[in-house]
Amino acid sequence: MSDLQARFEQATTDVKALSERPSNMTLLRLYALYKQGSEGDAHGDKPGMTDFVGRYKFEAWESLKGTAKDEAMQKYIDLVEELRSGAVS
């Protein structure tokens, strides 16, 4: 396992232990970066118009199309660190 992969997995654990819940926009960003870092470009069918949450999540992930997995993992790690330090909410 690479160092980046290990830090990414640690960040996925750390994000669950945040003292405050991040804003919805930050949660969407976390979700998109996690999916891009772990699965790559968005795939599958876009959720329907009545599935608002699913649609927003898919669109956030889809917006990162073409971003390398390593880059997405590093951005996820950086965002989690900012949240842990209180720099972002």
Rank of each mutant, 00 (worst) to 15 (best):
N24R: 15
Y31R: 11
Q5G: 14
Q36L: 02
F52S: 12
S89V: 11
D41K: 01
F8C: 07
R29V: 00
R21C: 14
D14G: 05
K16E: 15
T50H: 12
T13W: 12
F8H: 03
T13I: 11
P47C: 02
L18C: 03
P22W: 02
V88D: 12
L79S: 06
G86S: 07
D41I: 04
G37S: 04
G40R: 08
I77C: 04
W61Q: 03
R55I: 07
E39C: 06
K69T: 13
G48A: 10
D45T: 13
L64V: 00
L30R: 09
K35A: 09
E71R: 11
F58T: 04
D51F: 05
V53W: 08
L30I: 00
L28G: 07
L28S: 02
K75I: 07
S19Y: 14
A17H: 13
G40V: 02
R29Q: 08
G54S: 10
R21M: 13
D78P: 03
D14H: 06
G54L: 08
I77W: 00
S2F: 09
Y76I: 01
G37W: 00
S23F: 02
D14Q: 10
M49H: 14
G54I: 03
G40D: 06
G66E: 03
G54A: 08
D41Y: 05
S19L: 12
S2A: 14
L4W: 07
I77K: 01
W61R: 01
S89D: 15
D70H: 10
K16T: 15
P22L: 02
K46T: 15
L79C: 02
S2N: 13
D51Y: 08
R29T: 05
E82H: 10
P47E: 03
E62I: 09
S85N: 11
G86E: 09
E9V: 13
V53S: 09
S19G: 13
K35I: 06
Y56V: 15
L27Y: 03
L30G: 01
M49Q: 15
G48C: 04
E59D: 10
L28T: 05
T13N: 10
S85E: 13
E39F: 08
K69I: 09
F52M: 13
V80W: 06
G37N: 07
Q5M: 13
K46C: 13
S19C: 10
R84P: 01
Q5C: 09
I77T: 07
Y31D: 09
D14M: 10
Q36W: 00
